[in-house]
């Protein structure tokens, strides 16, 4: 009887362990054929480039440099006909971002301080990381309780 309980206990424990692993694995691994939608609300930067005369720098070349990487552009693009350019800095790279705008021998560089945690609300059709962590902790707590229950019954 004891060995039956021991076997059942081990099976349950392994089962719980596997369940916990499945829960905390990324959703796209667990459900490779499923669909998952996410949204991240982020703050975009709008650049407006004009000559001193006020004329828009239409189609000007834009190079965006992330903090710590001044030599290689993080992003390149062109202004629209109104001299505007939009980009969303990576919130995981806080610091001084640099944006260089050039057209026909004229150019300038502007620096934009991007603070940490500027990322906005997020959402997903799957579980969030926090939800997964809470579920994992709940399972672990249940695991411990189950183990203690069986060990007490065998005395």
């Amino acid at each position: 009887m004891q060995s039956k309980f021991r076997s059942l206990s081990s099976t349950c424990l392994v089962g719980f362990a596997v369940a916990v692993c499945l829960i905390i694995l990324p959703a796209d691994v667990a459900l490779a054929h499923g669909a998952e939608l996410q949204y991240i609300e982020r703050s975009a930067i709008e650049i407006t480039a004009r000559y001193d005369s006020g004329v828009p720098m239409a189609n000007a070349q834009v190079a965006v440099f992330a903090p710590g990487s001044p030599a290689e552009p993080w992003l390149t693009g062109t202004c629209d006909s109104e001299g505007q350019f939009f980009f969303t800095p990576d919130p995981e790279i806080p610091g001084l971002w640099e944006v260089q705008v050039r057209l026909a021998g004229h150019g300038d560089l502007i620096r934009i301080e991007v603070a940490e945690n500027t990322i906005g609300a997020t959402g997903t059709t799957g579980f969030t990381s926090l939800q997964k962590l809470l579920m994992a902790l709940s399972v672990i707590w249940g695991l411990i309780g189950t183990a203690l229950y069986f060990s007490r019954r065998q005395r």
Binding site: S9, F16, V20, I24, L133, I140, L143, I144, A147, S151
Partner: peptide, 22 residues
């Protein structure tokens, strides 16, 4: 008894490591 707890803690250790790795 000791042996059983040892097994339990091994399983818990595996789970914890997976969580930490993630």
């Amino acid at each position: 008894m000791k042996k059983r707890y040892s097994g339990i803690f091994k399983v818990l250790l595996v789970v914890s490591l997976v969580i930490l790795a993630g």
